[in-house]
Amino acid sequence: MKILFKSKMVLCLTLFSFLFINAQQKRNMENTALLMIDIQNDYFPGGKMELAGAESAANNAKKVLENFRKNNLPVIHIKHIATNEGAGFFLSDTSGVEINSLVSPKSNEKIIIKHFPNSFRETDLLKYLQKKGIKNLVITGMMTDVCVDSTVRAAFDLGFKNTVVGNATATRDRTLNGQTIKAAEVQRSFLAGMSALGNMYAEIVSDIESF
């Protein structure tokens, strides 16, 4: 009887712990939206501005997207259309400007068009988030050191708590003073910068299960 009683107690405690963790995870996702920044065809193989690891990053972003959809959480797709003189990619009315099929928006998901790296600049993103009561952002997308970084820092200044899914972002090689900085180094450096000073700008996680 004692063994049976102990077994039942262990089972009850295990079930309680599972339910508590589940409830805690749901609470953590309250007032949270997903930003999918510029996951567009020109960044993929054959595009006009191919990134290192774009397909891998997009597949990881897809997993995050599926999790948000499963939990009926808000999803916002950011789409860049170039309007600056001399732009060579994300040109209007080209296939390269379209959001990649791996993360195609559903009809009920918000699409915001931007023309600057910062997703808040001259868009209705802030107004939309405020209307939805969003306080926390989960961010994926491209390029890590340009549009993702500028959006994260702007979001922090506007009072949002940010989480960046690091392996769902991507960039490319850069040059400085005639030297090439490899994409992987750029990636690490910018993610490290966002998480500086105790995750001031953003917490960096590796997958959807981390938050």
Rank of each mutant, 00 (worst) to 15 (best):
residue 1 M to D: 10
residue 1 M to C: 09
residue 11 L to W: 14
residue 11 L to T: 06
residue 12 C to V: 05
residue 14 T to A: 15
residue 14 T to N: 14
residue 18 F to L: 15
residue 20 F to P: 01
residue 21 I to R: 13
residue 22 N to P: 00
residue 26 K to F: 10
residue 26 K to L: 08
residue 26 K to N: 14
residue 27 R to L: 12
residue 33 A to P: 00
residue 34 L to G: 04
residue 35 L to E: 07
residue 37 I to D: 02
residue 38 D to N: 14
residue 42 D to A: 11
residue 46 G to W: 07
residue 48 K to F: 05
residue 52 A to S: 12
residue 53 G to H: 03
residue 53 G to E: 03
residue 54 A to K: 00
residue 55 E to I: 12
residue 58 A to I: 01
residue 60 N to Y: 02
residue 61 A to G: 14
residue 64 V to K: 01
residue 65 L to S: 08
residue 66 E to Q: 13
residue 70 K to E: 12
residue 70 K to C: 01
residue 71 N to L: 12
residue 72 N to Y: 09
residue 73 L to W: 03
residue 78 I to D: 04
residue 80 H to R: 03
residue 85 E to R: 10
residue 89 F to R: 04
residue 91 L to N: 05
residue 92 S to W: 11
residue 95 S to D: 14
residue 96 G to P: 01
residue 101 S to F: 11
residue 102 L to H: 07
residue 102 L to V: 06
residue 104 S to W: 06
residue 107 S to A: 15
residue 110 K to C: 05
residue 115 H to P: 02
residue 115 H to Y: 09
residue 116 F to A: 10
residue 117 P to L: 07
residue 117 P to F: 10
residue 119 S to H: 02
residue 119 S to D: 03
residue 120 F to Q: 05
residue 120 F to T: 03
residue 122 E to T: 00
residue 125 L to Q: 07
residue 127 K to C: 08
residue 127 K to W: 02
residue 130 Q to I: 05
residue 130 Q to R: 14
residue 132 K to A: 13
residue 132 K to P: 01
residue 134 I to W: 14
residue 135 K to L: 10
residue 136 N to L: 06
residue 137 L to G: 06
residue 140 T to A: 13
residue 143 M to P: 02
residue 144 T to V: 03
residue 145 D to F: 10
residue 147 C to I: 02
residue 149 D to R: 09
residue 150 S to W: 13
residue 151 T to Q: 10
residue 153 R to T: 00
residue 155 A to I: 01
residue 157 D to I: 04
residue 157 D to N: 10
residue 158 L to Y: 14
residue 158 L to T: 00
residue 159 G to D: 09
residue 161 K to T: 10
residue 165 V to C: 04
residue 165 V to I: 14
residue 165 V to F: 09
residue 168 A to T: 02
residue 168 A to Y: 06
residue 170 A to R: 00
residue 172 R to K: 08
residue 174 R to Y: 11
residue 175 T to A: 07
residue 178 G to F: 14
residue 179 Q to K: 15
residue 180 T to Y: 08
residue 181 I to L: 14
residue 183 A to I: 00
residue 185 E to N: 09
residue 186 V to E: 05
residue 190 F to P: 01
residue 199 N to H: 13
residue 199 N to K: 14
residue 200 M to K: 14
residue 200 M to N: 05
residue 202 A to R: 00
residue 205 V to H: 07
residue 207 D to A: 11
residue 207 D to F: 01
residue 208 I to S: 03
residue 210 S to H: 05
